[in-house]
Design a protein around this nucleic acid. Structure first.
Lengths: 236, 236
DNA sequence: CGGAATCCGGATGGATACTG
DNA sequence: CAGTATCCATCCGGATTCCG
């Protein structure tokens, strides 16, 4: 497979670099760290990565002891999980994220990278059912501006403790509607802009029963990367 | 030049990853951070990197605002220096080094990566003239075991505040001789093994006047990566 | 010495199609 | 759904060359 020579350096940085300087590898680790376990989860979180390359990377990472691959008990496919060594890579990713936030001309929120599917998928993984009416379904509509109409509406469906993203109205009554420019919600998600500020400036609109509006900040959690980045946002 | 697509992610990790997931790039940054400024310094520290690729990387990094390139005042060539953004990358490298030290089956000191030239070059950059007799030259011979004879002897020449590596006896009287297996000195340098321990076990031999032997641990500084890694070694 | 340009074969990555 | 297979563009390593 890889006939590639190593860097020929005894310095430990080079060991990690040999692992991480292949394309997409850090992002695969990120996805796993943030909770993806299935091949299709990974594909969803890394839409621009080709399937062939993903499966190649998974094999390499397994071979390098970064992840384990086990046949899924429930049905088909495999479950991928980081090993201890794999989870230990996270501080590296964290410092990469921190560097980019402070030193990269912040075009990570430039138009071409804003992606509502990706954002919703990331949000879904961090959402908690806390503060959501139990034992009944609850629907939140996200309505994005700055996005082609066909990809501008997403429904988050809370049901039986499960959370699902729908691209079409799931039919139940909508309990809360969230309206914002895709960039606004992305910036909030990344911790660049405090939620309250966006609300106060009417750049993010919450519509629904008062209790549902107030509950929003309890179940809508920011990206793990946002923590410690910006003014705190979580409900008191 | 690079027509390569981005990762299409708004997550800041991906911004840093786009920069760092090209081959050799983290090590070029490491070299600059550790004090190299000239093209030939970089080549010396990265002997397995091709010249063409190095000059390509330097251009890319300059373009990305990681380093600046200025014509050298003194004579020919250019001086490469990290920008603030470039220096800010160091925590990433540091966590990479830390990860490898603790989670990579420590074959970074496996035989094929042990390299006396590289080691001497690294050592030289960290050596201080402190504790060295002033206003006269002072010569230290490093004698490596486990290395082909032709590359087994290096002389460190202290003269006029300058420090030079020689591959042949510079002719002056040798003030101190250091003898060890290449692996031993590499492990000491990386902080895997305390200097005192190696001395006590007679795995590192210091020969010379008592004062010169005692001075050794004052001017021989460990790799920056060793700091906080292992039992401290520096003289009290 | 300090770099940059070129050429070439092999390795890697991206796109798409295909299979169980 | 969970991956493979295939083809082509790009990247990388090594050697050589060139220039100032």
């Amino acid at each position: 497979m890889s006939k590639r020579q190593g860097y020929g350096q005894f310095c430990p940085i080079s060991r990690a670099a040999e692992l991480l300087t292949t394309r997409w590898t850090p992002l695969v680790v990120r996805e796993l760290y943030f909770g993806s376990t299935r091949y299709s989860d990974l594909r969803r979180g890394l839409p621009r990565m080709s399937s062939a390359l993903l499966s190649q990377r998974l094999k390499e990472l397994e071979h390098n002891g970064i992840l384990t691959c086990q046949p899924a008990e429930s049905g088909t496919g495999h479950v991928y999980r980081l090993t201890d060594a794999g989870r230990a890579l996270f501080p590296i990713l964290e410092s990469m994220g921190h560097w980019a936030q402070t030193h990269s001309s912040d075009d990570m929120t430039k138009d071409e990278n804003l992606d509502p599917d990706l954002l919703m998928w990331n949000i879904r993984r961090r959402v908690t059912s806390e503060g959501i009416p139990k034992n009944q379904h609850f629907v939140v509509l996200f309505h994005f501006l700055g996005v082609p109409i066909k990809r501008s509406r997403f429904w988050l469906l809370f049901r039986d403790g499960e959370i699902e993203i729908c691209m079409r109205d799931p039919g139940y009554e909508t309990g809360l509607a969230v309206t914002a420019h895709i960039r606004t919600l992305t910036q909030i998600w990344l911790g660049h802009v405090p939620l309250e500020l966006a609300i106060r400036r009417h750049e993010l609109l919450l519509e629904g029963e008062r209790s549902h509006v107030q509950a929003f900040s309890r179940w809508f959690n920011l990206s793990l990367l946002a923590i410690g980045n910006q003014a705190s946002v979580s409900s008191a």
